[in-house]
Structure formats: C-alpha cells, structure tokens
Design a protein around this nucleic acid. Structure first.
Length: 820
DNA sequence: ATCCTCCCCTAC
DNA sequence: TAAGGTAGGGGAGGAT
C-alpha cells in the first residue's frame, strides 16, 4: 500500500478514470489520445476540472491534453465535479442557466501554464458581471426582501424554519438519515445487476494474488464541507480554509468582558476535565463546521470558534456554507458506489461502510486496484477527494481510513492487525470519547496495548459491562457487529437549543406547538406513528449569566427529561402538542429560564395504510354501482384546459344525487340531535330533521360561520398520507402556500379546487371527508383532526353515522365516543 | 430476571 | 452577533 506516499497519492496523480457507462466511449478515445503523451509536466491544475463549452482557443482537444499534462481534469460533460467552464462566447440565456461553476476564458489555462502556476481565474471571467464569489447566493438575494434588522428568537413564529435552514448540525443529521433511506430504497428497487463491475474485469492482473476473504471498506470524504466549497473556489486550494457562518475574519465584536469571565469560570466548574479555550470577548464565536488540512496543521479543529481558530492561524480563509452542494455531492457519491454494490451501510452524507468481498470475488481484482479505481471515480464524479480504509471488519476498516487520511488508501491486512492495534491510542477507537478517555487515563490506560495487563472485569467495573467488553474487543481489533444494510428508524426528534428566549408561558407554549408540528411532520414523512414522547428542556444553570457570551446561545444549562407512553399511537401534531404540553406543565420551569426545548418520539410503528381503510369505505357494496357511474364521468374527459368547469359540474350533480340517495338516518328514538350539526345542514334537510324529531324551529336561527382553524400543511399531509395521489400533494400544498389568507378556507372553495384538479375519483371522497370533519368535528373542538378522521371512517363503515351530501348527521353518543 | 425512565455518551 | 441537531447505545436505579 502506498499510504506513506500521501503527497503523491492525492487522487489527481494519474488521469484515466471512468465516467458513467454511456460516456465510456469518449473516455476510451481520450485515453488513447493521452496514453502516449510524455510524463506529466506539472501539477498546476491540481483540483481543477474543466468543461469546455463551444469553440475556444486553445481548442477543446488541446485543452484536454493541457489539462492531462498539468495535473487537471477534463470533463466531457458539465458534471457536479466540474470546477470551471471554459468558453469564448455564450448566449446570455445560457449564462443564466449556468448557476454553478464560473465561466472562464481559455487563456486562463494557457497563461497559467506559461506562468507555471495557477493564476486567479477571476481575471479571466468571460462575463465580468459574474459574481464569482457566491454566484448562487447573490442571485437569490436580489429577489429577497432586505433582511430585517430585528433579532430573531424562538418567540418569533418564523424562527424555527430560519434556524433549521442555517443549522449545520441539523443538516448533518438530516443528510445522514436521508442517505440511510436512499440505500434502503436502492436496495428495494435493485435488480441485482451492477454494471460498474464490468469496468473492473479488464483491470484484472493474474500476477496479483487476490485476497478476497472478507473485506470491508470504509469511505470517508476528506473535510467534506471544505472540499465541496473549494470546487468553485480552486484558488483557495492549499490554503487554511474553514467553513463558518461568519465571513468577516477581521471583525471585532463587543461583548462585556465580565460576562465572558463568569462563563469561563462556570464551564471550568461544570466540566473540570475539559481544556477550555479561553474565550475572547472581541472574537467571533461562530463555530467552524469544517476545516482544511492546512488549517488543521495549525491546530484548528472542527467545532472551534472562528475567533479561537484565527489566533492559531491568522490567515484563515472563511468560506460560506453550501447546503445544496453537500447534498448534490453526497448523492453523486452514493450513486457512484451503487453502480458496484448495494452492500452499503450509510453512516452519514460523506461516510459509509461497504462489503466489497463480492466485488473483488466477481471481478478478480485486488483490494489495491479496487481502492485506486473507486477513489479516482469518486474524484471524477464529485470533484472531491476521499480516503478509504480496508480491513476484516468495520473497526479495522475505519482505523485504516484514519491512517489513510488525507486523500489516501490503506489496507489493514489480517496478519498485521496485532501489531497495528497495539499502537492505536484508545482515544482513536470509535465509541471512546472524552469521558471514556478520562476514565481510562485514571486507570493509567492510553494505548490499546495497555489493556493487555488489565482484566475484562476490571475494565467493565469502570466503564460498564457492555462498553468495557467492546473496548477490550476493539483493542484487539475484534468487532462483532456486522454491517447493517437495511436501516430502521427507532426514534424521531426535533431539538432547538439556540435562540430560546421566552418572556412568558404563552410564548413558550406557542413555540412548543410549532415544534410539535415540526416533529410530527418528520414522523409523517417516514410514514410512522409513535407510542412514546419525550420532552427535553435545557434550563439556565442557577449561577450562569442571563445572557451567555455566545449570541443567543444556551450557555451553561441543566437538562430535564420527561416522557410519557400514550395509550394509542400518536397520529397527529395536536396529540404531540397535547402530550408535550402536559409534560411541560408538569416540569413547570419559569419560561424566561428556558434555553432549549426538544421533543422526541419513540417506540415507532408503521403508520396504518390509509389506502385500505379508505378503499373498503369507498368500495362498500351498497354504493359500488353509483361510484362506477361517477368514475366514468370523471374519466371520460381529460382534466386539462377549459373543459374542467363543465366536467366538474357533471361530477357534482351526480355526487349529490348519490349522497342524497345514500341518506338513511339510522338515528334511534333515544338519540339526541347535535345542534351544531343541525345548524350546518342545508335548509331543506334542517326542516326535515326538525319535523321528524319534533324540534323547535327557532332552534336554528343563528348561522355559524365555518372557520378552519387547523388547516395547515400538516393536516393536508395527513389527509393525503398513503393515498395514491402523489401528483396531488405538491399541487395542493402549492395552492395553500399561494393563498393569501389560508387561515380561513372555505370548504366548498377547497372542494371546488380539488375537483378542478380532478386527478382521481378519490378526491371527491376526500372533499366529503374534509368537509364534514371541519364542519362538525374540528369546529366543535371535540378532538384532533386526525383522530376524528380515523374514527369517522370507522363509524361510517359501521353505520353509526349518516351522511347527507357533504354533511354528516351525528348523534350525541357518537360525539362522545370520539372525545378522546 | 426484565422492563422502564431518565439520563449520559458518542458520532457525524 | 449567530443559527449549540439528532439518532442510537447503554448505564443506574427503581418497579414489576
């Protein structure tokens, strides 16, 4: 293995990688063109990947060769990894389309070669009005209202989305979950064919003895956020670069020195084991999400405050986040691997374990060849470097990656494991963090070999039985946990420990409600229901200053956890809120002392498929014939253009007839009529009911306006969950978003809108559902929207409820039965 | 013994 | 200014 020659093996050393299968022919031609060239002449285009658009001077063919001989990459198509577009002229429309890489004149390449160094491409931009620093950001800013100068705390309704849109930790967590799900999906859809492997067979070299026992690969992108950022900022390559929110490294900040002091003392008191960086009252406390290896060499670390990092390395270059870029590159990374295997365990957006034994077996190539191949392909497709480690289990693979970094590969062979492990620091073992390290240190244990003199029982008495056993195993290179390719969610949560400042309980509870909606939406997204809810609060430590040094931070806090297990499954956001509110009130913390709030849902189960229930409801034998008539009419004409109006009218008429005929009141003599329901009936029906039940006609003189209080995105999502109307969801959500006053939605208007969309007959049924739910159940405040929905579906099936048109006739007993 | 609740720890 | 989230494993100690 060549992991010792790290500087050479930077992923750019040789060109000749592979692109997607459809581009294979071009690659072949290019390889032929470049294979007989002389040795590489320089490395000045290290990290640059160009795509040539149209005619240029030098020509595309010449640029191809120049890039190859000077350490760069030539892309035949614009790809995610493309760092620059080379062009002499581009129509304006095309320029607008190209939101990504800067468009640069070809002379940038030739003059850089003449100068024998990479010149600043910004002097060669084809269009000087291109904003080369943050083209995408600046473009969108132009369309946005000026940011308000008011500081946003969690009391503000727009805080939650603003916060999550800017939170790197939230991004890391959600991206991780997304790629675990992507692997699940790819595995479900897979036909078991891996076209990528065909590219490997020609690499087979019979002189190499292949070692295919059981090989696990670990891939980790090198300082991921920085690498993605540098794709469009190649002039910063080789410099100490950090990704942070704060961009102005020169700015000084005014903070009261005394409060900084107080906080430092407190942190030392609460966490005596940690070595705290001295807080500077004038330096930025923006956290570094990711730093380049050049910055790491100065001692800069991820998570460090920008201010602290600048003290270690004054010429740090701060680059902004590129949240979409991370997602884009991760997707390419996973798709690249999926071409070869789906025995992938996703760890995060930039890290995974892969069982490569089947690849090696089926193609006959060696670990070494595979490592070179896949690393080059990842570099080609993403424009970002990665490191790979190989071993007999996940622990070995992971430690091998650590050794391989940056931009390298390492295979920890079975025969080398013992010697290798002895020298590994205990702190380097996965799962061994600061607390465990300090416990081990107190026992005089630092390296894995130190454990040889300790018994398992001794270790377990300090670390606990499970962790003790794992550490003992790990120290010998043993890892008993197999790779898990099919990920299953066990909990879902939403936490906010930033910007939490409430003046009273009204503010706190309204935030809790928004957070409930947030966490429920996430539950809904994965089509799950929950049995258990946990509320976590951060409360200012008694001796901590009211305001911590970090702007809107949580400061030093105590945590409080409370949980409940609900009788039924949690199936809507109102229930989440109700349970969270109960716990919140039970804990009873002064609202102004709150610094963090989190809701976690656990004991998850698959959501019941709405489809089957609705289907049974719709395909009730008694109504079948009438439905068929309706279906025919809806499907007879396409739902496009002006014909809609005419079409929907037909539908409405037939539906009304259908429901009128369907109206049979199974109301027994001892049943009371619900007044509110009666009020909502059409006039002729009211008269009929009044007559039949011998009621006072004055009973209905007061008209009630229908206001849909709960009509929001969540309720709509609930309504469509599981129904095969995928096209409908975005349209309805879009429509809701475009409505200026969505809090008061007329049911009929909504129904008309659904009908106009008439994608599917079920929409008519949904109209009915929505209509009676809102008019009669949600409005009465009897229970939450979703609970009502399910109960009513059941009730209708059992004949407990009668329908008239889009209206329900409900008796008191039924109302009681849905009052949870 | 086994489960549950309330944490803590770790990783990305 | 700044955006300190989230999921999973597991331990301590009490309830059953």
């Amino acid at each position: 293995m060549d992991s010792n020659n790290r500087d050479e093996d930077n992923g750019f050393a040789e060109w000749g990688g592979y692109m997607a299968a459809k581009k294979a022919k071009l690659v072949e031609q290019y390889n032929q063109a470049t294979s007989n060239l002389n040795e590489k002449q320089s490395n000045i285009f290290n990290g640059i990947a160009i795509f040539v658009n149209g005619y240029t001077n030098p020509t595309a063919e010449e640029l191809k060769v120049l890039m190859a001989t000077h350490g760069g990459i030539y892309h035949h198509y614009q790809m995610p990894g493309t760092t620059h577009i080379i062009a002499s002229i581009l129509p304006n429309a095309k320029v607008k389309q190209l939101s990504g890489p800067p468009i640069v004149q070809a002379s940038w390449i030739s003059e850089s070669i003449l100068a024998q160094k990479l010149l600043d491409y910004r002097k060669y931009l084809l269009y000087t009005n291109q904003n080369h620093r943050q083209p995408v950001l600046d473009f969108t800013h132009a369309n946005k209202p000026a940011p308000s100068s008011k500081t946003l705390t969690a009391a503000d309704p727009s805080f939650l989305s603003e916060f999550y849109n800017n939170s790197r930790l939230h991004l890391i967590a959600t991206l991780g979950a997304e790629y675990k799900q992507l692997v699940n999906q790819l595995r479900e859809k897979s036909q078991g064919s891996f076209p990528g492997r065909d590219k490997l067979k020609p690499l087979r070299d019979s002189s190499v003895i292949t070692d295919v026992e059981n090989v696990i690969m670990h891939i980790d992108m090198d300082c991921f956020f920085v690498s993605v950022g540098l794709r469009s900022k190649p002039h910063l390559r080789g410099q100490p670069v950090v990704v942070t929110h704060a961009q102005n490294t020169q700015k000084t900040i005014n903070r009261p020195e005394t409060s900084v002091d107080a906080e430092m003392k407190l942190m030392e008191k609460y966490y005596p084991d940690q070595n705290w960086e001295r807080l500077d009252p004038h330096a930025s406390m923006s956290e570094i999400a990711c730093c380049s290896y050049e910055a790491r060499r100065c001692g800069v670390r991820n998570g460090m405050f920008l201010g602290a990092a600048l003290k270690l390395c004054p010429d740090i270059k701060a680059i902004p986040y590129d949240f979409e870029g991370y997602r884009e590159v991760s997707t390419v990374l996973y798709k690249t691997l999926a071409d070869y295997t789906l025995d992938i365990e996703a760890v995060s957006c930039d890290e995974m374990y892969v069982d490569v034994s089947p690849i090696l077996k089926s193609t006959g190539i060696s670990v070494d060849q595979w490592a070179d191949h896949i690393r080059r392909e990842i570099m080609d497709s993403t424009g970002c470097p990665c490191s790979t480690g190989f071993g007999a289990n996940r622990l070995q693979a992971r430690l091998a990656t650590k050794k391989a970094k940056p931009a390298g590969k390492f295979y920890l062979r079975p025969e080398d494991v013992d010697e290798f492990m002895g020298n590994v620091t205990l702190a380097d073992l996965p799962g061994v963090g600061p607390t465990t390290v300090s416990k081990l240190k107190k026992m005089g244990l630092v390296k894995c070999s130190d454990l040889y003199s300790v018994t398992l029982t001794q270790l377990q008495s300090e670390l606990g039985s499970k962790i003790g056993e794992t550490v003992m195993d790990f120290a010998k290179g043993i890892d008993r946990k197999p790779l898990n390719f099919q990920h299953e969610r066990k909990s879902i949560s939403a936490d906010v420990n930033y910007g939490i400042r409430f003046k009273d309980n009204v503010e706190a509870l309204s935030f809790l409600q928004r957070l409930s909606e947030e966490v429920f939406n996430r539950l809904q997204d994965v089509k799950m229901r929950a049995r258990c809810l946990n509320l976590r609060l951060l409360v200012r430590a008694p001796d901590a200053p009211q305001e911590p040094s970090k702007f809107l931070g949580c400061g030093v806090c105590n945590t409080i956890n409370r949980s409940t297990t609900t009788g039924g499954l949690i199936g809507d956001s109102a229930t989440v809120y109700r349970e969270a509110k109960n716990l919140f009130e039970k804990i009873n913390v002064p609202p102004h002392e709150l610094r963090g709030v989190g809701i976690q849902l656990s004991r998850l189960e698959k959501a019941p498929p709405l489809n089957s229930v609705l289907k049974r409801f719709l395909q009730n034998d008694q109504t079948k014939t009438k439905q068929d008539v309706v279906v025919k009419k809806v499907e007879a004409k396409p739902t496009r253009g002006r014909k809609i109006a005419k079409n929907t009218k037909t539908v409405k008429t037939s539906l009304n007839q259908y429901f009128k005929q369907d109206f049979v009141a199974p109301v027994s003599s001892n049943t009371e009529i619900d007044l509110n329901v009666l009020k909502e009936l059409p006039a002729d029906m009211q008269q009929q009911v009044i007559k039949e039940y011998k009621l006072d006609p004055g009973i209905i003189t007061e008209q009630v306006k229908v206001v849909l209080q709960d009509f929001n995105e969540t309720s709509v999502r609930n309504a469509f969950d599981g129904i095969a109307c995928d096209q409908l969801k975005p349209i309805v959500l879009n429509w809701l978003n475009s409505t200026s006053a969505p809090k008061e939605v007329d049911v009929e208007m909504l129904a008309e809108h659904f009908k106009a969309l008439a994608i599917h007959r079920k929409i008519e049924e949904l109209k009915v559902m929505l209509s009676f739910l809102y008019r009669h159940v949600a409005k009465l405040g009897l229970c939450s929207w979703h609970e009502a929905y399910w109960t009513i579906v059941d009730a209708v099936q059992q004949g407990m409820v009668a329908r008239y048109g889009s209206t329900l006739l409900v008796d008191r007993n039924f109302c009681c039965s849905i009052h949870f």
